[in-house]
Each structure stands twice: as C-alpha cells, then as structure tokens.
Design a protein around this nucleic acid. Sequence first.
DNA 1: GTCTATAACGAGATAGAC
DNA 2: GTCTATCTCGTTATAGAC
Lengths: 234, 234
Amino acid sequence: MSTVRGARARARIEITAAIKDEARRQLAAEGAAKLSLRAVARELGMVSSALYRYFPSRDELLTALIIDAYDAVGAAAEKAHAAAGRAAPGDRLAQWTAVCRAVRAWAVAHPHEYALIYGSPVPGYSAPQDTVGPAARVGLLLVGTARAAWEDEGVALPPLPDGLAPEAARLAADLAPDLPPALAAALVSAWAQLFGLVSFEVFGQFDRIVEDRDAFFAAAAERLGREVGLRPRP
Amino acid sequence: MSTVRGARARARIEITAAIKDEARRQLAAEGAAKLSLRAVARELGMVSSALYRYFPSRDELLTALIIDAYDAVGAAAEKAHAAAGRAAPGDRLAQWTAVCRAVRAWAVAHPHEYALIYGSPVPGYSAPQDTVGPAARVGLLLVGTARAAWEDEGVALPPLPDGLAPEAARLAADLAPDLPPALAAALVSAWAQLFGLVSFEVFGQFDRIVEDRDAFFAAAAERLGREVGLRPRP
DNA sequence: GTCTATAACGAGATAGAC
DNA sequence: GTCTATCTCGTTATAGAC
C-alpha cells in the first residue's frame, strides 16, 4: 500500500522534475516569453494536456522555475555564508564577499535562470506571493552578516542625508528592527548594487570593457561590504 | 524634382517613425522576444513585405529601437548634465547626481525601452557594433564629471586592492588615459551600480520594500558620486 | 483516485500559391 | 498585395487505462 503510494509519489516527483528541466532548456534557448507548455510536452513525448496534472497553467510552471532559481542562488549563497563563517569566524567582511562571490558564480553559471529572476519582467506574468520568501534568501544573508558585525563592535556609517531619514526608519522597521536606520538603508542599497554588478556582467554590458571580471568583482564586493560598515579583521 | 525627392524623403522618415512607434507599443505589450514585423505591419495597415523596404529584418528593427533607446536616455542625461553645469558651475557632485536622476527618470518613464537596453538580452539577437557609440553616452558623462573634479582639485580615493591594479590600469588606458587607474575602476563600478539601482526599481525588485524611491535613489546616487571622489562644494 | 490520450475551441503565426 | 491552407499556442472537456 505505502509502496504503491511511494512509487506513484516518486514517479510524480520525477516527471515534475523532468518537466522543469525541459522548461529550463527552453528558457535558455528561447527565453521566458516563449516558454510553451506544448513544446515541453512534445519534447518529453507527452501530450500537452497531460502536463496540466503537474502544473495547472503555464504561469504556474513559470512560477515554479522562478522559485527554483531563487532557491538555487539562495542555497549557493547560504553555503558560502556558512563555509566562510566556519573558515574565519568573526571575519564578517570575508563572509560578506564570500556571499557576493557565490551569487555571482551562480549567476554566471546559470545566466538564463538568473535572467528569469533578476532580468526584465516576463510580459503578462505577475509573480505570486510564493516567490517572496525564496527571493529574500540572499538579502537575509547580507543582513545577517551586517547584523553580526554590528553586534560585534558597532559600525560607523556616514550620517543619513536629510531626506532619507523617514524612509530609512521605515526600511529598518520592516527589515531589521534591531539595526540602525542608516545601516538598513545602506544594506538595501548595497543589495541592489551587488545585483547591478552581476547583471552587467551576465547581460553583457561589460563585454569589451571589463576583462578581469574576477578581480573587478572582488574589489567591488569588498567595497560594498565596507559601505555597510564591515571592516577587515584587525 | 528636388521637391519630389524631398517629399519622398519626408514620407520615408515619417513611415520609418511610425513603424518604430508601433514596434515600441508592441515592445511594451509583448516584450522584445515577441516583436514581430508582421504584427507591426498589420497594425499600420501595411503588408509585411512592405516593411522590408524600411527595415531589412526584425533584427535591424530591434537594433534601431535599441539605438533610439540609448540615444534617448543619453540625451536626457546630457541635458541634465549641461543644465547642472550651468546652474552650479564647479559643483561636480550636483552634476553627477543630476545625471543619475535623469537616467532614473527616463527609465521609470520608459520601462520597456529601458528593459530593451539594460534588461535580459533578447534570445537569438546579438547587438551589432552600431549600438556601441550610443550605449556609451551616459558613461561618458559620468567620466567627464569625474574628470572635471579630478582636474579641479584631484580626488582622494582609497588605494586599489592588490589584485585589481592590472585591470584598473587597463580600464584607465581604454576609457580615460588621463585619469588614475583607481578612478577609472571606481567609475566603471559606479556606472554598473547606478544601473543596478535603476533596474531594481524598474523591474519591480523594490516593490513592497522601498517606498520613498526618490529619497532612496538620491542618497544612493550621491554616495556613488563620493565613491568616484566627488565632494560637495566647500 | 491518478494519470494519459483524444479532440476540440479560438486565437494567432507562417508559407506559398496566386 | 491578397488569400488560403497549415502550423502553433493555452486551455478545456471527455473518455478510458491503471
């Protein structure tokens, strides 16, 4: 009884994975806008209507791919975060740059999945609430490292520009009530800028401009870390 | 004779503009991947083969749209650059932030054209050399402002991290041989981060996170300016 | 209950004959 | 330039296999 259910469940998991794999292949070849349930089904030797047992609509398949992508980059970042924490406990700047490098490495290795989550929105598709949690994973790591440094020794940040004080207070209340508003605002800014660097590289804006991308990115990531108050180990 | 030719030329210009306008409308509705010469023709009451007199292929139409977009954001930035130069000559930080704000304002007003040039690459399309010049316009303004500040009074930048020295020298040689390598590298980094901030806003990554986008962006742009050595007027 | 297959819909793209 | 025959798409209804 339970083996039967187990076998069915296993088959379901396998087929679901096969569908997503094939969809990712199409993502790379044609882009998210042209992702087609029929083409996926054809490639898998299924009939299109059969896919509806696994994904109730094309948009739900897209959502699954988006969540997987956020989870993949999040997992890569978390792994780097943990490893850096073990390798040099207390060296928050090293941990910060390790997370940045992991994000970049994942993005360079999976450019089409990266484009799906950090590139132009897919026309006609609007991401449901389910993506919010996975999307936050990298950001949470960055906040965590900055918080650890703040708890260690406090951080020295330049004073907030006048106009930003209310928004910074709002950000802090939403994202990290224990942190000073200036740090919360700096974190959001660094977060956006990290992905700006990665996007420029992945989307080809650095072609014929930046050559030694590793060195360039490493320096930029470290600078971002300093902007949220991280300092090299004394 | 010449009036006939003039009229013909005028008609050609008008039709070319109408084609691009309709194509931009489709860009907004369906995305660049689905831009179709046939649909453009249908909407204009033309037959698709007639379009080939104006654009030899879909890719050439895309290229024209891309160049137009780079030129539009470049012109907006140049206008802000010039106005800031007139309003407060010598205040380089104000000029820098004015350019940043102009880029952002254009992007927010034209999100689909922004996505075309700074979003995910269009699958199967590779930009020809013609786009390089227009694409450089904003970057050149940023370099120009930083150069002016450098010539005014020099700039104090943190020393380059070890590994970055060769790449920074290369960047400086390519982009601005008169500037110190550390400044060239900081400029490329600030350039990428500026568009990272804009992309996060335009692509919806700030939804439900950053509320007062004007204040947030203004503060970030000013910080970027300081990173390339700009200081407020004494 | 769970799945797949057939067939169909309405809409749109596409290729080629004329 | 036009028309038509043939594709694609997402999605649903239905019937039957396991």
